[in-house]
Amino acid sequence: MLKTKTSSRQAPGRFPCAQCGAVLKYAPGTTHLVCDYCGFENHIEYRAGVIEEYDLQEALRRLSEPHPEAPKAQIHCNECGAGFQFEANIHAGECPFCGSPIVTATGHSKPIQPKSLLPFRIDEPEARQRFQRWIKGLWFAPNAVKKYARSQSKLTGVYLPYWTFDSDTETDYTGERGDIYYVSQPVRVTRNNQTVTEIRRVPKIRWTPVRGHVSRFFDDVLVGASKSLPRKILDALQPWDLEQLIPYDEHYLSGFRSEYYQVNLDEGFDHAKQVMDSAIYRDIAYDIGGDHQRIHQVSTRHSGMTYKHCLLPVWSAAFRYRNKSYRFVINGRTGEVQGERPYSWWKIGFAALAALLLAAGAYFYLESTGALQHSQSGSYYNMPYYQNNRY
């Protein structure tokens, strides 16, 4: 899967219409290319093949070897004859001179090429409707921002690069198990304007040293390999239907932008290990049991590590509010919307003030009816105390 080329000129993939000669574009949710001019459709032939997992340690070893730096590719548009270069992280998009869809080979600039992808399932009009519903439902958003939902700004369809990682983990740990028990002890309270002593049951925690072992196999831990969007947005677009991945086919990229990975393989696995560690800590807490857990030392061993490099579809756009840009993306398979948004601080302040007034009104009402005093004299300390502090 590792490959390096040194040619500085690329012949882009071309998908001409059989009727009028215009370049065809992939139609989301289908298995065919469509001509924007005459409506001709060209079926995309199914490419059989297994979506392979690749050995991670072998790939990292080969990547550590010195490789000649590839010159930046010069692209020649077959429609208008123009020569140009894409941005450093782009390998599919439009010719800046005539707007024709351009798809270039992925092996020129990066040693690891995508071997699978998920095609777009929802088209631009549906994606815009999803965004409109999302932005209209934002609490405490400025009114000017909500008006943006009625605009018809163009969305950009982008295939983003992702890594997936598999790993078989074995973890040894030491910690403490906390079990709640109750003791009776005197408590001084005020009742009917008099201070009295009552015997009440009070919760305590008994800590016991523990050690143990947990194991877990991680399958397809997904890590975004793009730096065009914040990681929190990329992660929030999950889940993806990775079981529907198909072998890489540049026909599905025609009419869309597509990025090279910007997060290298070793960086991606470091992030994947953080995701795995969170799940391992939850396993340890469950294994310790009890009402509370303290985890002191953790030692995890990884084996059988494999990876895939795939492309996943999103619709992307941005809007400006008070000289600041806010980005949002829509999952091109599920329609899930995630993004950045501004807040209206006067709306937040008004809501906070209303909440304080409501709380104050409830307090004075309870005090005037005597309900508050009755509640304070109840058996609060006799209530069972339970808190599960698991990770």
Rank of each mutant, 00 (worst) to 15 (best):
P12M: 03
R14N: 06
P16Q: 03
P16K: 02
Q19L: 13
C20H: 05
C20P: 07
G29P: 00
G29F: 05
F40T: 13
N42Q: 14
N42I: 02
E45Y: 08
V50Y: 11
Y54K: 02
E65A: 15
H67T: 14
Q74R: 13
C80Q: 06
F84G: 09
C95N: 06
F97W: 12
S100F: 01
T106P: 00
S109L: 13
Q113T: 13
P114K: 02
S116F: 04
F120M: 01
F120V: 04
R121E: 13
D123R: 09
E124G: 07
P125N: 06
Q129C: 10
I135N: 01
A141D: 08
K147Y: 09
S167T: 07
R188G: 07
T195M: 12
E198N: 03
R201S: 15
P203Q: 00
K204T: 09
V223D: 04
L229I: 14
L229R: 06
R231L: 08
R231I: 10
H251G: 08
S254N: 02
E259V: 06
E259K: 02
Y260A: 03
L265G: 11
M276D: 04
Y286A: 15
D287S: 14
D291W: 10
Q293H: 02
T300L: 05
Y307N: 02
L311M: 05
K324P: 01
T334S: 14
E336C: 10
E336D: 14
V337E: 08
A359G: 08
G361T: 02
F364K: 11
T369K: 11
G370I: 11
A371C: 07
L372C: 04
Q376G: 03
P384M: 00
N388P: 03
Y391D: 10
